[in-house]
Design a binder for these strands. Structure first.
Lengths: 218, 218
DNA sequence: AGAAGATTGTTCCAGACGGTACATTGTGTA
DNA sequence: TACACAATGTACCGTCTGGAACAATCTTCT
């Protein structure tokens, strides 16, 4: 019994349900993000898995169940990453600037998630009906902006009528579009805006736009 | 031969290929916008048509051919509508404001088109490869903004470094997101921003943001 | 009228697809 | 060890789907 082989896990050497589920979810996420709910093929998912078709239906019920699980885990993962950002103590303009830049980079770094959200919107959000635990995470996102706005207004640098929700909406819009609509935009207007340098400029540009949009003027 | 029955058309009374094509395209557009390329069913399309499955393949080759035709016509239709807007002679700030508001309304009024674009982005714009005649229409969109920006800079009300392309990108981002991501946004943050009145405010808010973003400050 | 090509109807199919039945093996517990 | 249940392998199925074959009918041109 060398514990170099079997780690701290009390699990056996042959069956590992959690690992199987995780394996399936990882592959399924990629396939759904690539081809959508109807476009993804269970067979194709299974082939890239160490598991079998049998197990997919065993653990997730049906195709939609698998899709829902993928979506839910995707949201959880993303929100968790977001919580890494700490803006406490920064002056409001600086905080907003950082938040925009962070969101921009964050979206850019997670195109698979963006695709899943776009796909779910095509389905009119039908599959998010009962994802109850998202509420807290979303509230956190808004609260961050509420703090920034409150401070900004108090210090007299933000317009007194800025809406944290609208501001969040605007940040999301810009950052989401940059990833989600990259392809059609490129086909229509060229790749000009999507080189690494151009993206840096773009990021600065939208950060500025959003900051100027909330700034109070004498 | 009463010409109350047959209009000016020199066509016969029984065969009308153009009408058949148009009929198929209309229904196909709705189905593709609703379910995506892989999700749409040819049978379902045909059932809502006065025509038959046979004709779909006769005129459009295969499913992808039909999809491509739908996409192309959708773009053509939209751009044509856009050309109705006339901003000549307006002061630049006013012109930009109007353009943003017009785009906002325009996108909102054409959710089917927005969905098609979102779907095509999921496919990485693969099906727009040879839609050559879009180039002109797109250039027109940019040229409008170039004029506005040039005037604005000349009059000293716009920053001298504004980029018409980036400005267009920003306008598109906001207006597209409002329609495309409505569902997931609603699930996450409530319907608050999507009542008719709230949309009015939102429209004003993004118009202001974008205008302030280009404004030159002393 | 009649040939030639365009348009349409009917019927069928080969494969793919999501999902299931049945049997077997692993595993924690008494 | 023996039981009960969870996890897995294998093989199979009914249906749906995009598409094709074959044949008939319109329409135009000579």
């Amino acid at each position: 019994m060398k514990d170099t082989d079997q780690q701290v896990r009390s699990r056996s050497w042959k069956q590992d349900p959690e690992a199987v589920k995780a394996d399936i979810l990882t592959v399924a996420r990629e396939e759904f993000a690539e081809h959508g709910l109807s476009g993804a093929r269970i067979q194709q998912i299974v082939e890239r898995t160490k598991s079998s078709k049998r197990m997919v239906f065993y653990y997730f019920g049906d195709k939609e169940g698998l899709y829902r699980a993928v979506l839910e885990e995707a949201y959880r993962g993303i929100r968790w990453q977001e919580s890494e950002l700490d803006l406490d103590g920064l002056p409001p303009v600086e905080a907003l600037l950082r938040l925009v830049e962070f969101t921009f980079d964050h979206h850019r770094a997670n195109p698979e998630f963006i695709r899943l959200v776009a796909i779910e919107n095509i389905h009119r959000g039908r599959h998010m009906a009962d994802m109850s635990d998202l509420a807290d995470l979303n509230r956190a996102a808004i609260e961050t902006l509420e703090t920034i706005c409150a401070t900004g207004i108090a210090e007299g640098v933000f317009r007194p009528d800025v809406s944290p929700l609208i501001l969040h909406w605007q940040i999301s819009a810009m950052c989401f579009f940059n990833v989600a609509n990259r392809h059609t935009f490129t086909r229509n207007f060229g790749t000009e805006l999507f080189s690494d340098e151009a993206q840096k400029d773009l990021r600065a540009s939208i950060a500025r736009t959003l900051v100027e949009g909330v700034r109070l003027r004498p």
